[in-house]
């Protein structure tokens, strides 16, 4: 971890949620992530930035073992969630993913009603005791997703009928519904127009109250707007990690400076 004196006060406020140590990822013979050490804090928005193919998405997907679905992918090193190794043989990825939710680049609502989209997670994890309970969870999640007012009259309309920005907020609400502790977002705004992006960014800022949010983004402006901590990846290495303000105004590493000034990437 890169220690910046300026960030000290915030670090003391928040506890470490995820600690990664010497993480390596291989796709077949390709060494995609090299020796990444990072500590992600609770109730903080952490942004991963870097040029395309730098490994930021790959690393994000390691945090809830989404890479397990890819046959040729291999992960080495430790990733601890609240001090427990998530790659331990005893860990069921299903349980892990209930704690570490994920929102994807392209909005991917299920071909079901809005209600069923939200209720899907609580149902499979058995979070609701009865129908009223489930209704409550759905409403709460949609409110947290800042989309309740737009859809409350058509909860049983298909989720695919919403606009792109609404769909993405629906997906965020869907992820929130399982009450995760960490929320991973893989370029959540890249498929959205500026207005929808604004809405989602606002939402991310609100989510910080309850969750630890990790967001991968291509847009440095976005990282600057929404995150408190920023990590810069380049060619599979974590180059620099620190307070967002410090990374953007006073980067330590030459490569970070080149990237944010637009010379590489």
């Amino acid at each position: 971890m890169y220690d910046a004196p300026a960030s000290e006060q915030k670090v003391t406020q928040n506890t470490t949620k995820i600690a990664a140590h010497k993480v390596q990822v291989f796709y077949g013979d390709t060494h995609a992530i090299k020796d990444v050490d990072v500590q992600i804090e609770d109730k903080t928005v952490t942004a991963f930035i870097g040029p395309s193919g730098c490994g930021k998405s790959t690393f994000l997907r390691c945090l809830n073992r989404m890479n397990d679905t890819i046959d040729i992918c291999r992960v080495e090193g430790d990733i601890l969630l609240d001090g427990e190794d998530i790659y331990d043989a005893k860990v069921d990825p299903v349980q892990l993913r209930a704690k570490v939710g994920m929102v994807f680049q392209k909005p991917n609502p299920f071909p079901k009603s809005i209600y069923d989209n939200i209720a899907y997670g609580p149902r499979i994890h058995g979070l609701a005791k009865n129908k009223a309970d489930l209704d409550e969870i759905v409403e709460k999640s949609l409110r947290r997703g800042a989309i309740w007012d737009e859809v409350k009259d058509r909860l049983h309309a298909p989720g695919t009928g919403l606009s792109g920005g609404q769909q993405q907020r629906l997906c965020i609400a869907r992820a929130v519904a399982t009450e995760p502790e960490v929320l991973l977002m893989d370029e959540p705004c890249s498929a959205l127009d500026p207005i929808a992006t604004g809405q989602v960014e606002e939402l991310i800022d609100e989510l910080r109250e309850n969750y630890s949010v990790v967001i991968v983004t291509h847009s440095m402006q976005q990282a600057a707007r929404v995150s408190q901590k920023t990590a810069f990846f380049h060619l599979g290495n974590l180059v620099e990690y620190g307070e967002t303000g410090q990374i953007f105004t006073n980067p330590v590493d030459k490569r970070t400076e080149s990237y944010i000034t637009g010379r590489i990437g």
């Binding site: 704690k99 499979i124 994890h125 058995g126």
Partner: peptide, 28 residues
């Protein structure tokens, strides 16, 4: 749809350890 919505005794397994499988996961 599954029976999960009305499953009794499905106490929310919040803050449980990742290293132990809860009953529900075992059944699933």
């Amino acid at each position: 749809m599954t029976d999960a919505a009305t499953n009794p005794g499905a106490a929310t397994p919040r803050k449980s350890s990742l290293l132990t499988l809860d009953d529900r996961t075992r059944r699933r």
